[in-house]
Design a protein around this nucleic acid. Structure first.
Lengths: 151, 151
DNA sequence: ATTTTTGTTGTATAATTATTATGAGGTGTA
DNA sequence: TACACCTCATAATAATTATACAACAAAAAT
């Protein structure tokens, strides 16, 4: 196991789960077969420049600073082809996609790790994204539109 | 507002929500129109002999030092393994599950027949439960959490 | 083939931050 | 007055994170 691999796994873990302290992260790594101490995690966090942001269920969560949020050009391109419309209503975003593509699009959007997203549900040609507040919905909606526009 | 009333409200709040610190509790009380400082809460907690137990979404939560187990141990056990988080927003409950497990979890929850549930939609790793009111959502959310907790 | 340098880690613990408890003083009421 | 109860300020405690130091391994230099 190299440090690089560990770093990658850390990034994966913190985007998949709300992890709010280094011991939890150490435990999560352990489940993936990588065993290091909190001290090492502390250094990793520092290397990766991770920050703590507000979580949904938890008070905090580790995260990449938003500027580094990850979505590949390729993904954005696919997204732009699949998505027909993006609208908000109260604390929801409703996205219409090509028939049968809602899931693909939803996965791409999920991977973009918008931190305020409570949950995402994809049907056949519709995605419903649930957020905490109307404001969150508007912000995230805008971000999604930008992703598509810049693809 | 009497101290007794406040104590009762505190008990109500801590059973409905996962509250993990005194400031949060103070804030929650404020929303109900009762404004006291953390210092007072500290004394209330002491009066009520509340304890901190493990939460589901959060690391801790305040609780009465007893716990009433309610439903099918087997189902609850499965549920507890599948569910990652349970949160409410307006009149919805959003449940995150392990990938691919949303349907299984949704079925178990459906079987628990919460009377106020309007409908349940399961995606791949997210369940959306729609209820009549925000209050219903909070109550049912709490019940689901209890199911899991007591597993 | 040794020796030196460099980088990485764990242990132990220091530093920091978050949370809770409490002393002192004020207000209202019997 | 005596008492209950509160806030403010801050002390005490607990949780979390960072780091000094020693050990080790691998790469580089001699």
């Amino acid at each position: 196991m190299t440090k690089k691999e560990r770093h990658e796994l850390i990034l994966k873990l913190i985007t998949e789960k709300e992890i709010d302290n280094q011991q939890d992260l150490s435990n999560a790594l352990k489940k993936s077969g990588i065993e290091v101490t909190q001290a090492t995690i502390s250094r990793d966090i520092n290397d990766l420049k991770l920050i703590k942001i507000n979580g949904i269920a938890k008070k905090y969560r580790y995260s990449l600073p938003f500027s580094q949020a990850i979505i590949s050009h390729e993904s954005a391109e696919i997204l732009s082809k699949l998505v027909i419309s993006v609208v908000t209503t109260s604390n929801f975003i409703v996205i219409k996609t090509l028939d049968g593509s809602a899931n693909t699009a939803a996965n791409i959007i999920d991977d973009a790790t918008f931190v305020n997203v409570l949950g995402t549900i994809a049907g056949d040609n519709t995605i419903l994204i649930v957020l905490n507040t109307k404001q969150d919905a508007e912000v995230v909606c805008q971000k999604i539109k930008e992703l598509i526009k810049n693809a």
